[in-house]
């Protein structure tokens, strides 16, 4: 899922300072699962904003909505009927959702309530960790199912570097060394001998964001 976290409440209060009537839009997809932008978080943020405005003696009207997804046009369109009655949309979807709001409602400012952080999963209740950088050319079959682009701080394809220490990365003692994980996993799979000794060729990053904004078209699915 796309993992995000709430912006500091005061940053949000400052961002919406000039508005007195806003839509606060959550999303029931990834950000709901990572407890950053679902229905519950919409309620809590609306309340916190209300507290902040009351504290300053200023009223604010907040219309709370939580869409099925903010990354699909048909769901984003669901606020069409009343969007014009509000001065701004504060979206607590990921960056995609905020941009979809901006694209669909040309004259209403779309504001981000979250910092979209990474593609990852949950390790345990309340803890999320990055797994994928979306490089567009997956090589997990060669690295024991552990991504060197994401999990090595230097994205080395022929690691580990000299900074690997007791399974940890030189960047932080809390961070695992991605290459230690790859080596352990290759060994467990019995693939260490043939995989590790091979030189990893230079990567083509043109499928990554480096090639510009990416787009996928499925002709078989188009209307």
């Amino acid at each position: 899922m796309i993992v995000a976290q709430a912006k500091p409440i005061e940053d949000i209060v400052t961002m919406i300072d000039r508005y007195d009537k806003i839509i606060l839009a959550g999303c029931k997809a990834c950000v709901a699962v990572c407890a950053a932008g679902g229905e519950k978080e919409v309620g809590i943020l609306a309340s916190a904003i209300t507290l902040a405005r009351k504290r300053d003696g200023r009223a604010i009207e907040i219309r709370e909505v939580t869409l099925e997804r903010q990354c699909d046009p048909e769901y984003v369109e669901q606020i069409r009927g009343f969007a014009g009655d509000y001065q701004a949309v504060l979206s607590i979807a990921c960056g995609v959702g905020v941009q979809y709001m901006a694209e669909h409602y040309k004259t209403i400012p779309a504001l981000p309530g979250l910092n979209t952080s990474f593609m990852g999963g949950s390790l345990e209740q309340g803890v999320w960790s990055e797994r994928c950088q979306g490089c567009g050319q997956c090589i997990l079959h060669l690295t024991g199912g552990i991504c060197p682009v994401t999990r090595c701080s230097k994205s080395l394809f022929n690691g580990p570097c000299g900074g690997s220490s007791k399974g940890k990365c030189e960047v932080s003692p809390e961070m695992e060394c991605g290459w230690q994980l790859i080596i352990d996993r290759l060994k467990a799979l019995g693939e260490f001998e043939n995989r590790f000794t091979e030189l990893f060729p230079i990567k083509d990053w043109s499928t990554s964001r480096d090639g510009g904004q990416r787009k996928i078209t499925r002709e078989d699915m188009k209307a």
Binding site: S153, K154, S155, L156, F157, N158, G159, C161, G163, E170, V171, S172, L199, F200, P201, I202, K203, W205
Partner: peptide, 24 residues
């Protein structure tokens, strides 16, 4: 060389490149 991660340096805010690694 691949180089020390910028986390240790005087510009930890920098974007790192690592288009290729030291062996490459």
């Amino acid at each position: 060389l691949s180089g020390d991660h910028q986390r240790f340096g005087d510009h930890p805010q920098a974007k790192n490149v690592y288009d290729i690694d030291s062996i490459q």
